[in-house]
Computed example of a mutant assay.
Amino acid sequence: MTKTAFFDASELIDVQNGQDPNSEIFQSESHPKELLYSNRMYTKLMEFEPNASEAVQIAAKAQHICRWKIARDSYPMDRVGYLTWRGDLKKLHAQTTAAILEKVGYDEDFIARVSFLIKKKQLKKDEETQLLEDVICLVFMDYYLEPFVEKHDAEKLKNIILKTWNKMSEKGHQQALKISYSATNLQLIKEAIGL
């Protein structure tokens, strides 16, 4: 596939994510929330694995595409509701991305592979699914751990950190420990993972 198709697909993913009505302030500027997340995912992937395949690069950018279209509070606020919501989101992300990839000329096999990755199938078994999961976890640890710290008590936070840690590869663990955390958060992470 030509690089033109990749750039066209990336641009269309950005257009979709740029429509997010939710915003986040970063470096004193307001950004559409999922566009910011998409950019963080792609940047982190390129830092962590510069030779990542085109399929992983697109899956990283489209990981949360149009996430705001399915609200969490439209499902029961329990574990089953949460898992159903997450499953429906994965389908939405995969279908939205597949339509974009088809539009710019990717073939069925490539589209199927990107959908497989976005749905995070065969985690721990498929190398590229694991790579994507590592990047998701690294982005969480780098950018989204701090807001969680403000909302939850230490024990719940340790549980969240440990669950995140357990999804990652050894290479992911090494990278996560290189992130610049506050002293408090670093201590919390060390306690959670038993360092």
Rank of each mutant, 00 (worst) to 15 (best):
F26H: 08
K44Q: 15
W85I: 03
V80M: 12
H152R: 08
K156S: 08
G87M: 07
Q130H: 12
E128R: 00
K120D: 09
Q130V: 03
E47F: 10
E47A: 11
I58D: 03
L101Q: 02
P147K: 11
L138C: 03
P21R: 05
A112C: 07
G87C: 03
R86H: 02
Y75A: 05
T4Q: 11
Q19G: 08
A9T: 05
I111C: 06
A99G: 02
L89S: 04
Y144A: 07
G87S: 13
N185L: 11
S74P: 01
L188I: 04
Y37F: 12
L123F: 01
F6Q: 09
Y181G: 00
M41K: 00
K120F: 05
S28I: 04
D78V: 08
E133C: 15
N22S: 15
I160F: 15
N22I: 14
T96L: 02
Q63A: 04
A154V: 14
N185Y: 03
V104A: 08
P32C: 01
E47D: 15
I13R: 08
A5T: 03
I161R: 04
L117M: 05
P21M: 03
D14L: 10
N17Q: 09
F7M: 12
I161C: 06
Q130K: 09
K103V: 00
Q63P: 01
I118C: 00
I70L: 11
Y106M: 09
I65R: 01
V104E: 12
A62F: 01
L89N: 04
N39L: 10
L12R: 09
D14Q: 11
A94P: 11
V139S: 12
E11Q: 13
K163Y: 09
L132G: 00
Q130D: 13
S23G: 15
E128Q: 11
P76F: 05
T84Y: 03
A62Y: 02
E133N: 15
T96D: 02
K167E: 12
T96P: 02
V56H: 04
M141D: 10
Y106C: 12
N39D: 09
N166F: 01
